[in-house]
Design a protein around this nucleic acid. Structure first.
Lengths: 195, 195
DNA sequence: ACCTGAACACCGTTCAAGT
DNA sequence: ACCTGAACACCGTTCAAGT
């Protein structure tokens, strides 16, 4: 167990001492609520109840915090998809569960961060790289699941792209416009096993 | 014709006098390049070669500019979809042309603005309302096209949602991951006439 | 090892004055 | 009718000093 480390961390917190990770978490909160543009030093310092000057012990500047946030996000997403895609159950069930994570807004904060970072990536090279890394792993793992359903390589790749395109696009539309029936039709059509 | 008005406008421009629309266009440029968060008074004033003080003749504050930009965007998108969806050609051809507008990045600036505003809408009520208005019209018009292909109301609505979900989602993914084949498979599957 | 507090530059906002 | 220029507040950044 790591209870020793955890207790040490707790002691640090008690002494009102922060680490870089505390700033990254605060940055992710801001990103979820208002986009990457709202990751700003002074409001974050206020939320963490320290002066803005202390920020510069942990990061050289605002950009460094954003870069660290992107790296942390990419790492977490890659670990998550590997865990979710590696399952002992049937591939169709695994894919259905993956889709559910997006469709039922199980984690609206995660989805908000995801969309905010993808929007930011259109004008920022660092974010583009993070998104590219995550997409590569997700499409690889989901392609493998479609391959397990019987599709040849190229078809499996196309379906993996459709799978994620639909899930992301859906969350950009006004939620009221997307009926549960429409989602069910789309996902079940994708999950048809290869003939 | 409106050449009289146009010439008067030109004269104004010549005298280095701006109207609210010039600021809105500059705001849209910023939105396309860096997201709504980069719509900032001083950089915009610099781009328009006026002092930032003059901005406040046209708008009460930065938020008013963003609101005006959103209203202008929504109006333009609604006019555009009405024009594109009202066609004398076959409904499948009309839908294929609509999809092409997104897939072949005919207008990357328009797509960047679209995605930036949709991302912003997740944390902003005004942007949410603009997106909702545009979605309502687009889904209505595209649903009518699918209905013309023979689908009953509910199926037509589901396909309209899939149509836009896919087009938006696709543009969030790393473009390199989305092969032309995958796009063709998706769009042609949607455009199958009702049996 | 992490934080404070003061300093300065940058940008949003106001407003009196210009044309 | 639209713009300038000065003023002030807010936030990013620096840095000497604290614990």
């Amino acid at each position: 167990m790591e209870s020793g480390t955890a207790m040490a961390k707790q002691a640090e917190r008690k002494a009102d001492r922060l680490d870089a990770h505390a700033w990254i978490e605060a940055a992710l909160d801001a990103t979820a609520k208002g986009g990457v543009g709202t990751v700003r030093v002074e409001p974050l310092a206020a939320a963490l109840k320290v002066t803005k000057g202390s920020f510069y012990w942990h990061f050289v500047d605002r950009q460094a915090l954003i870069d660290a946030m992107l790296a942390h996000w990419a790492e977490g997403r890659i670990a998550a998809i590997r865990q979710h895609a590696t399952s002992t159950e049937a591939p169709a069930a695994t894919l259905r569960k993956l889709a559910d994570l997006y469709i039922h807004h199980a984690n609206w904060r995660g989805l908000a961060i995801e969309l905010a970072i993808r929007a930011f990536a259109h004008g920022n090279a660092g974010a583009r790289k993070a998104v590219r890394t995550v997409d590569k792993e997700r499409l690889k793992d989901v392609k493998a699941l479609f391959a397990a359903l019987g599709w040849p390589s190229q078809e499996a790749q196309a379906r993996a792209v459709l799978f994620y395109s639909y899930l992301f696009g859906r969350s950009l539309l006004d939620v009221n416009a997307v009926t549960p029936q429409a989602s069910a039709i789309a996902i079940e059509a994708l999950l048809q096993p290869a003939r």
